[in-house]
């Protein structure tokens, strides 16, 4: 009697790749958000000194 061949699809590797793709997109966004905070934090002081009351953030 012939054995029935069973196919199993290992999706764990694919899942890993999807997670990596997501992280590859999210990590630069997180780093840039951190950067934006510190850029504003450091540059607003000099901008305020240079432009005085005419300086507006938004």
């Amino acid at each position: 009697m012939r054995k029935k061949i069973q196919h199993k699809h290992d999706t764990s590797l694919l899942k890993g790749a999807t997670t990596s793709v997501g992280l590859l997109a999210i990590l630069p966004i997180i780093l840039t958000t951190i950067g934006l905070f510190f850029i504003f934090d450091a540059s607003s002081v000099s901008a305020f000194r240079n432009f005085g009351d005419s300086f507006y953030f938004f």
Partner: peptide
Amino acid sequence: FISYGGSSLLILFSLMGIVISIAR
């Protein structure tokens, strides 16, 4: 990604897009 600089940020994001394209 952290230091101020528009051109640098745009180029880095473009390069990350290429990395994602290779990963996909």
